[in-house]
Nucleic acid binder design. Structure first.
Lengths: 217, 217
DNA sequence: ATAATAATTTAGATTACCCTAAACTAATGT
DNA sequence: ACATTAGTTTAGGGTAATCTAAATTATTAT
């Protein structure tokens, strides 16, 4: 059985290696799990010994099939719990991340299956991110980020990249939730900020923010 | 913030010192948290340094007010989660203990308040044990155990002392749930076993089992 | 090609929790 | 009073995860 910490490292490696094959660098990994590079080196050695990642010194780490499955199970739990917190307990979507970080490490197959059933097998979490199924299958959303939309184009918001409370609060204020339609009405080349239409409301979005909004044309 | 392990020790001390004032012996404590006496000694020193218990060498440990509150909060979480698992997720009452042992250590005030609200502020858990309120107030059930009932007497089952799966499965089979009415129709002095009426059904209960059924006349 | 710089790894400690074995304390029986 | 015994504590270590500082490797600039 994996420890709390091992699960966190695997999850971080999964998220950092995005489309799978690029190696994850020790420094990036350390930053992601909020430790020092030396600690990350120790852990990747341990994970490699357990065949959860492949690791080459000074080069980086990649998840093995086994490691990827474990990572996806942690992500499945995280996203199901987030969904539960919002849908059943009435949390705001910017309040759930921290608690889900704890709940994702509860070890009980039965619990997560029952929770999935209770929530009626949701496909995405409150931030629009896809929830892996019990076999670790996850539907990859080939979404582009909002800052790549041209003037005049419309799109549907599918997800949010960053789950920090401050960003989510801001998105909440302007009404930028997954499922909503967004139309770009002006682009400012200087700072790449945009003006958009959301629910008939004219909103101003900085580049920092639009980068983190994923959309589907 | 208390660690997982510290919380478990506090909870164990609470349960072992029943009505509060008897000191908890190191050996009993060690057995309860499934470690060795030497480890328990280390931990009680640590808890004493944190003013969560008072501790005298070779004599035993007692919860301070602060320690008792912490213990009650862990118990509150445990029992609310058990209630959730049974009522919302459809677990059997003999399946919940292990998972609740993990869930009880999630740190989030907001979560537990929301959960309490979601469950509509239950007073007891699925085993009939009282759930402490947000201030740590717990209604002491002055219940007697079933083996103290005389022949011919009726009573209401209030709780179950032991939460091991095998006992709960047995009680499930004969229908002995909290809230049910039980009537003693025969006592066997030799082995202290009893015959009783439960839902109109004649059931045979050994002393080992009747000791663990709490009732209210 | 080599020096400077950035990234990574190793070495050596630290903390929390747990262990075994030995030493100690309190209680009991003769 | 003293020996036995049960219970407890101390001493000394082990493991997992972390850290700082020093050493090593890879990359970049000249």
């Amino acid at each position: 059985m994996l420890s709390f910490t091992e699960e966190n490292y695997l999850k971080a490696i999964y998220h950092l290696s995005k489309e799978g094959s690029e190696p994850v660098l020790t420094n990036d990994l350390a930053k992601s799990v909020r430790t020092k590079a030396a600690s990350a080196t120790d852990m990747v050695k341990k994970l490699a010994a357990k065949k959860l990642i492949s690791y080459r010194k000074y080069y980086g780490a990649n998840l093995t099939t086994k490691g990827k499955t474990e990572a996806l199970m942690v992500i499945r739990k995280h996203r199901l719990w987030e969904t539960f917190l919002v849908q059943a307990l009435g949390f705001m979507w910017d309040e759930v991340h921290e608690v889900a970080e704890q709940l994702e490490h509860i070890h009980s197959k039965r619990l997560i299956e029952k929770l999935d059933e209770f929530l009626n097998y949701p496909k995405t979490d409150p931030h629009g991110d896809p929830i892996p199924d019990r076999n670790g299958k996850i539907q990859q959303t080939a979404a582009i980020s909002c800052d790549q939309l041209e003037k005049g184009k419309s799109a549907i918001i599918t997800a949010v990249k960053d789950s920090s409370g401050s960003l989510l609060k801001l998105l909440d204020k302007i009404g930028a939730h997954p499922g909503k339609k967004i139309k770009i009405i002006a682009c400012e080349p200087y700072d790449k900020s945009v003006e958009a239409l959301l629910d008939g409301q004219r909103v101003f979005i900085s580049h920092e923010v639009s980068k983190n909004i994923l959309v589907k044309e």
